[in-house]
Amino acid sequence: MPSSSTVPTPMLATLGQLPSGPGWAFEMKWDGQRAIATIDNGVSRLFSRNGNDITATFPELARPITDALDRREAILDGEIVALDARGRPSFGRLQRRMHVLSPTEQLCNEVPVTYYVFDVLALDGKPTTSLPYLQRRTELEDLALSGPRMQVPPYWTDVNGEQMLDLARQQHLEGAVAKRMDSTYRPGRRSPAWIKQPLRANTEGIIVGWVDGTGTAREGVGSLLLGAYDDDHRLVYIGHVGTGFTTATRKALREQLAAIERPTTPLAAPPPARDTKGARWVGPKLVGDVEYREHTSGRLRHPSWKGLRDDKAPSEVDLPGRH
Rank of each mutant, 00 (worst) to 15 (best):
A259T: 10
V236S: 02
A228G: 02
V7E: 04
V100A: 09
S3I: 09
D230A: 05
I195M: 05
Y115W: 06
S102I: 11
I36F: 06
K126G: 03
E141C: 12
A168E: 11
H323I: 07
D124L: 01
H240G: 12
P10Q: 10
I238Y: 01
W30R: 08
P8Q: 04
R280N: 10
L121H: 09
V211H: 00
D230N: 14
V120I: 15
T296M: 08
C108S: 15
R45F: 07
D289N: 15
D231A: 14
V177P: 02
P192R: 10
P272W: 06
L143Q: 07
I75M: 07
E261V: 07
N160E: 08
R190G: 03
E27F: 03
V113D: 01
V317T: 05
D70S: 12
F26D: 08
G242D: 11
Q256I: 00
R190P: 08
V317R: 08
R262I: 14
R93Q: 13
L121Y: 11
M164T: 11
R254K: 15
S297C: 00
P148I: 05
S183D: 05
P192A: 03
S3H: 12
L199W: 00
G16V: 03
P22Y: 10
R280W: 01
S183M: 08
G125Q: 03
V282C: 13
N109E: 15
W210G: 02
L199F: 03
V282E: 07
G209M: 06
V236I: 14
G222Q: 06
E79A: 08
P19F: 09
T6M: 11
D142T: 12
L140Y: 05
I207Y: 00
P59S: 12
G23A: 07
L225W: 04
R180D: 00
P127Y: 06
Q151F: 01
V120R: 09
R189N: 14
A217E: 10
E139Q: 15
T247Y: 10
G205F: 04
E27P: 07
L173S: 04
L134C: 08
S3Y: 05
N52C: 06
Q163S: 14
P263G: 07
G283N: 13
G209V: 06
L286Y: 04
R137P: 01
D31G: 09
R93Y: 11
L308F: 12
K285L: 15
V211C: 06
L61Q: 03
S191L: 09
L18H: 04
V7L: 05
R180H: 03
E79K: 04
P266D: 05
D212Q: 05
P89T: 10
L224S: 04
P153N: 05
R234H: 10
